[in-house]
Each structure stands twice: as C-alpha cells, then as structure tokens.
Amino acid sequence: MQQTATNKPVSDEQIMELLRSEQGFERGFRQLMAQYRERLYWHIRRMVLLHEDADDVLQNTFIKIYRGVLQFEGKSKLYTWMYRIATNEAISHLQGKARHASESIDDTLAAMSNRLQADEWFDGDAITVKLQKAIAELPEKQRIVFNLRYYDEMPYEQMSAVLSTSTGALKASFHHAVKKVEAAFREL
C-alpha cells in the first residue's frame, strides 16, 4: 500500500525519525518531498532558468537525497544539506550543458537567458527578462549568492552553511552582485 505524506508540516527530526525506521522510510521520504519540493524547485529554477532543466535537476536532487539521507548526520539542518545537494546538481547540470556545447558556463547561461522568453513556462515582462539576463551575467558564485539572498531571502548564516563560505564574504559578494546587476540592467 502506498504510504502518503500528511499535509501538515512536520519537523525535520520527525522526518528523520520516519526515514530511519524501516516501515516509515517511504512515508518519511514522501513527507520530505512534499515539504521541500517547491523551495528546492525555485532555487534550482533560478539557477538553470528553464523549467525542463529545473525538472531534471530537481529529480536528480531527490534521487541523491533518497540515496544519502540515512547518511545525513544532522550536523547541519536537513534543509541546508538538501540545498547544498540541489546547488551542486544545478552547477553540474550547467557544466554538462556547457561541455556539450564546448563553451563556458557563463556563455551557456547567457544563451539560456536569451531563450528564456521562448520557454513555455516563462511569462515575465520585458523588465523581468532584462533582470534575468543581468543576473545571468554574474560570475557563478555571485549568481548563487544573489539568488539565495534576493529571491529566497536566505539569512547569511544559513547561506554560510550551504556554501561553506564566511558570512562576511557572502555579504561582500551580495553587495558586489547587486551593484553589477543594476549596472548590467542599465546597459542592456
């Protein structure tokens, strides 16, 4: 019988408890997906821009989580750990695409941002398209920091755990990124 997740959010500890029990593993994993799929999707989507790519990356992310969740030691928050996996998967995906096209990730992302309006699942206005193109021009690390802070509103402390970077460096990175995005937007 299929084990379903509850609609009511449960704590990470309760999810882990379910995952660690043989009978509750599947229910725990469904609960984890139900609780975190949207946040992880949007994080990934902002990194890879197109829905089709985001869908691939999200599925791979959950497969990795499925494989490794029992090795999760609880040294960080469950969500932080999953964010890290999602970030790495998105970067790997972009690297794969860049390698396939024999170009840099920045070039690949620029090309993807140009295709953004053709994506069936994008209906942003001209300003939004321009903003996404400006963000796509940022170096990889700054782009991730910008997205995590600007769109996800992630606190620097949590971001520090995800990206293994000091909060000071992250603040500086975000400040640089904001200035660059604004300047790039004006030039586009």
Partner: peptide, 21 residues
Amino acid sequence: SRKQAGMQVPPGYFEQLELAI
C-alpha cells in the same frame, strides 16, 4: 517583484513530481 520572477510551472507539476521520482 521578486515573486517567482515570471517563472511558472505546468499545472499539477508538484503533485506529479512525487510519482515521477
């Protein structure tokens, strides 16, 4: 506006995601 930045998902995507995974 920071909400989803013009990006959308197909209807029922998140509900079907579990099955796909």
